[in-house]
Structures are given as C-alpha cells and as structure tokens.
Design a binder for these strands. Structure first.
Lengths: 379, 379
DNA sequence: GTCCACAATGAATCTAATA
DNA sequence: ATATTAGATTCATTGTGGA
C-alpha cells in the first residue's frame, strides 16, 4: 500500500523543488520497506538519520545457560542474509537513500555489533559519508559468555558521520560537557541494557528482541540535533527514537515494516511526555566507579610476576603469577582474596589489605599500589 | 636486499614440505616490507599475528590500485575513493599473507581507529577470517578534543579473528577470568596510553608516534597464546610485541621497514627480562586437566557402591552402582551426567557439580572427591 | 508492608573427544 | 563424515513469592 504510493510520488517530484514545499510525514510511522519509504522523501529534507539495521547474526544451534535454561536468541527472518554480498547490497541501498534525504549539514548514526558494523562503516565511507566519531556503548549488564569460549561481548558500536568532509554539523558540545560532570564527553558511553519497566512486553513476552535503551537515544539526539529538527529512523522497531524525539521536542519519522512493531510504537509514543527537567537526571547513568582488578597491576608492571608478597606479620608468603593469581609455597593457588582466606582458614579475606610488598625494607599493603595506579590514570 | 632474497626463497620452497623443516627467523627483526617478508615465511607456520597497521595512507610508494597496478602518489590525481581503494588493496595484500602463514588454529589481532578499522574488519571477513571478538581499548587518559567539535576520541578497536568458522583457537579463559578478579573478561579493556618511563624517547622526542602500551600486548598474548608459541608482528615499530612476547616466554618475529625503529626495538627487547617459568604459570581451565571417570572413584573406594547421592537441595536422589553408574528411585539409570540431565529435564548436566554426598552432615559436590583423587595421584 | 531467597533473562556468530 | 558421550559453563538486574 503506502510504500508503492510513496515511491510513485517520489519519482514524479522535481528535484529542484525546495524541500519545504514537499510535506514530510512528520511524527508518523510509515509502514513500509525502508528503502521504498525513504525514496518517497525529498532530497535534502531531514536533519538526522538514526539507524539500527539488522546485525546479520549468524547463530549456530541452540544455546543453554549453565543452569540448563534456554537462551532466547534473535531468530527473526529480518536478520537473515545469505551472504556478506547480500548484506552489503542491502546496506548500500538504504545508505544511498539516507544520504540523499539528509540536508547538507545533516548527520547519520548507525549502531551495530562486530557482525555487521565493519561492513556498515566501510559502506558509509564508500558512499562519501565522513566519519566524525565511533562511539562505544558499554553495557553495564551484558549477557555473559556462558560457555567460556570468548571474551564477554559487552559492547556495541555506533558510527556518527556527516555527509562529507567539509560539511558543518550540529554538535552540542556544551550540553554534552554538562551531561558529563563538566568533563568532555568521551567516545565510550556506559548504559544498562533495556529492561525493567522500559522494556515493552506483551503477554509477558518482549515485543521486540533488540529494543534499545532510551538513554542511548537521548544522548544521541541531545548531542547532534536542535529542537524542531527532523529525525528519520528507517528501522523504527518499537519506536525508541520516536519516544525520545518527542520528549526532546524533535520531529520524527519512523519507518517500519512489521505491523506488530508499529502498533506497539504508536501506543508507546502517544504515552511519552515531553521532557520535564526532573527526567534529565534519571537518564544519566552513574559515573563508572574506578574498580581495579589485581591483574591490572601486574599487566601494568606495578608488580612483576614472580614478586613475593607476605602478610603484615610475614607469617604467610605468596608469589605473584602472570595472570594475577598468587601461589603459596605449599602449592595452593588463587586470587589475592581467595588465597588469603585459605591460608588463614577464614571464610573471606580482603587481599588488598592482607598482602604486602616490600619497598625499601618496609612492608606496604598492595592497596598502596592500587591507589598509585588510580592516581596515575584517573583524570 | 633482504626482502628480495626472502621472496626468492619463499617461491622455491615446496608447499608440501613440513613447516618445521623450514627455519623461522625466531626472535629476530626482519627489516623489510611486511608483505615481502611474510611471503618468505612458510605456510601454516605461526600461531599468532598481531598487527598495528598504518592508516595515514603514507604507504611510502606501496600504493596499489584495486587491480594491483602500482600508483605514483605524486603525479596521480587522487580523490578519497581512490585512496580507500588503495588502502583496501594494501590491507588485502598483507592480510592474505597473514592468513597463509597462520597455522590452522592460529588467530590474528588487528588494532585500529575509526579511520581504518571498518575497512580492515570487512577485509578480514572477506578473506574468510572468522571474527571472535571486537575489543575496545578504553584510554584512561586520552588526548582531549581541543576544539570541542566532536566527542573525545577515547578508545581504539582491536579485532580478534580465527582462520575460519570451524577453526579451534587458543583462549585462556581461566587466566583471563583470574586477571579480572574472578569475573569473565569483557570486551572493553581500560589501559593508560603509553607514557612515562615506558615511552621510548630520543633527544626528548618520542621515537614512534603510536607506541602501544605493553599492558595491552600482555593481555592479548596471555589470552590467546601458549608459552613457546610463535607471534608475528608485521608492523613491528619499536617492538612492543617483541618485548612482551619475550617477557611471557613466547617466540616473536618482527617485521619493520624503518631502520630507526628497528634499532630502538632491538635495544629495548634486549633489555626486557623474561619471566621465570613459575611466574608464567596461570590458572588452568579444568578442560586442560586430566579427565577422571566417575567409576575410578568407585574403584578406588572414594565412594562405595550403594552410597546415596543427592542434588544440592536434596530434591533428587540416586544410588551409586558398582560400575560407576547411578540409579534413581524411579528405576532410571545412567552416568552421573545423563541421570542428572534426565531428572531435571535439562538438555545437559555436569554430574560432578550436580551430585553431592554427605560428609559430617554437610553436602559436598562429588567434584571435591575428584579433586582429592587428582591431588593424590598427580605428581 | 518489608526483607530475603530464588527465579528469570538479555543482539550470542558459545565444547571437545571418541566411536 | 555423523552420532554419542563426557563434562564445562554465567553477570547484573528485575520480578516474584513466601516468611
């Protein structure tokens, strides 16, 4: 329906017609394929594109947690592509339309994981987009790697790009610095994954498998748009972009193919309230606490593998090993806390204050080294 | 000089010749172009490649068009698309050699920033490499964005990949978990940038513009190699990879074109002290320990036939049989794993941690008996 | 109503050895 | 090659139900 009509309209529109003269479907959802729907929008007519395209995960079989429960994976058809070539063609197609509809000073954000983000990034560059930053969303509570086969996949990547090298773009530097306790906003952002009351559910089931946290969109829109700007999301899903745009006083256009997602998004956005000041505070994640693992001191050569540690009374001795574990002369090994507890026959032990190193003949707790490390690395 | 000779040698080597018969230039720097130097190494002969490729496109006369033809950067008219094509050709060339020299179960690490990492990642996938993780190096003390025009560029990205989807690879899961205070190591790592005494300087100037911190390489090598493995760094620079490999008891081969960097690297690596073997020991995964069959515990009277086992909550009960199988009251019999899975209606179960025996009124997992047996029988 | 124990779950490319 | 078996493997947060 809509899609075909929209395509026809786009084709008959004269390119030199000023964008303002063509009405945009502001604050609406276009239920159609993203390329077809974007084709219906005029050239150079929108300020921002935020895109959360399919990641092209290539999952194997079923996965179970150590407790035997089943992991609910993303198995939807919209995430299936036969080959990288097919995914690249899809990416080029929607990026080309995104480039066309953006105003000269507009910018684009794309989020992805290692499965797709490298292909997306290369395609962006190939189409002439100029990358301004890559941003890392550090998940405060990622799903663990249950089988212990790799590093916990604890982040996703966003790319922010302008239409070209010389383009002027909106960056609300001051707002970002204020948001970050008067320090420049960095390229690594920490947010929890979307859950709790924010997560849309129906009959106890999540409505969308990959709903993004509103805090993420909040920062994106606050950083790179002005009030009244037009934000297009070609993979609208359940409308996080629309809900946050409404709260921040930006116009939005959502493009989504699945009727179920569209319905959930409409309901959600209607319930969203324009921003009041108190909401701002709750959107900010607490500043990451500087926590130092003992192994980090070994990696950074504050203590070398092979070094000897003792307790304050030199009754217990241990040797530092390459991975930050300790080995006692009796052969027992473990973390600084675990070994301290074992040797004392105690249920627990604070290894930072229990273990000491010798410095100029004086025993000092290894906590001293941790403080030194923090002083050297914290701004 | 060397490069040409090496190429000639590589071309005359018979492919079916076992890798061991060809001597590798272990613990040496090859002063040559990286593609030429890798061409001189045998197929499937190294365990790890760590690469920190340039992204500034100052490739020093090594620019190629996508068809392989050479480009004169001074006289040719370049636009950014030609530049990307040239960078991609360069990337494909060295990645192809890296793929060839890696053993079937070897892995590759590449570090980069948003300028080049998306092209490198896409090339890796196109060459058949299978991405295992992307890792974010969060800089504790990045350079601020002085003009306030973008987010502070506070991280770099590493990609870790195997030779293919089905390849086995080395991942020292337990050592990483130990290094991170008994939590799974995540995909975001925080390190300070290289400075202080670690930063190589000459006449007050830094010797290399992008010297990487040794802590970063320490974690990379500890995670993905075993002692004695061979690590190749095709963009050796001032030899961080070599210095850390030497400390950790890994062999290294450095490839570097600039004589000044080579000289600095040699001096630096000679000064690096290798760790002794006991310090090198890391926490081992149970996977690396010898297997013990449950029946062996019965044979050795650690548990007697007829003994009663229960789960931790005493919900499930079973009786030990003479052959090391278990019998449930309902009549179901099977191995410790199979019966645990059957009774819980789970796809799988680790019988060692599921089943418990009572010792002085306290329930203990039968894994405790296995550990006792291992301690008593291992030298 | 409060506290505590336990269960549920999230963009995940998630085993290895032997028959 | 495929099937079977042994056995290794999880973190932060939210929701729920009983005491």
């Amino acid at each position: 329906m809509g899609a075909v009509q929209l395509v026809a309209r786009a084709r008959t529109r004269k390119p030199e017609q000023p964008a303002e003269a063509v009405s945009l479907p502001l604050d609406q959802i276009v239920m159609a394929d993203c390329v077809a729907a974007m084709r219906a929008l005029p050239d150079a007519s929108v300020d921002l594109v935020f895109a959360d395209p399919p990641y092209n995960l290539q999952l194997g079989g079923e996965l179970f947690r150590p407790d035997g429960s089943h992991v609910d994976a993303v198995t939807d058809d919209w995430d299936k592509f036969d080959t990288f070539a097919a995914y690249d063609a899809f990416t080029r197609a929607w990026l080309a339309e995104a480039h066309r509809i953006l105003k000269p000073n507009g910018t684009i954000w794309v989020i992805g994981s290692y499965h797709n983000i490298f292909r997306v990034g290369a395609s962006l560059q190939d189409q002439g987009f100029w990358i301004l930053n890559d941003i890392v969303w550090r998940k405060a509570n990622p799903m663990p790697n249950f089988k212990g086969t790799r590093f916990t996949n604890a982040h996703e990547t966003l790319i922010w790009a302008s239409k070209g090298e010389k383009a002027k773009y909106t960056f609300n530097y001051r707002a970002m610095k204020t948001l970050n306790d008067e320090l420049q906003m960095r390229s690594d952002w920490e947010f929890p994954i979307c859950g709790g009351g924010e997560r849309l559910k129906k009959d106890g089931q999540k409505v969308h498998p990959t709903q993004k946290p509103e805090a993420l969109l909040y920062r994106v829109l606050l950083a790179s748009t002005k009030p009244g700007d037009v934000v297009v999301d070609p993979f609208f899903g359940t409308g996080t972009t629309g809900a946050v745009a409404k709260r921040l006083g930006r116009h939005w256009i959502g493009i989504e193919r699945e009727p179920g997602y569209c319905a959930a998004a409409i309901e959600r956005i209607e319930a969203a309230l324009p921003l009041d000041e108190s909401a701002l505070a709750t959107m900010q994640s607490p500043r990451a606490q500087p926590k130092v693992a003992f192994g980090v001191l070994v990696e950074n050569a504050y203590l070398l593998p092979g070094a000897t540690l003792t307790c304050a009374k030199r009754r217990h001795v241990a040797t530092v090993r390459a991975d930050g574990s300790l080995a006692a002369p009796c052969g027992t090994v473990g973390s600084i806390h675990k070994l301290g507890a074992t040797l004392q026959n105690a249920p627990a032990c604070n290894g930072w204050t229990f273990w000491h190193y010798e410095d100029a003949g004086v025993l000092k707790p290894i906590d001293t080294l941790r403080q030194t490390y923090l002083l050297a690395t914290q701004p």
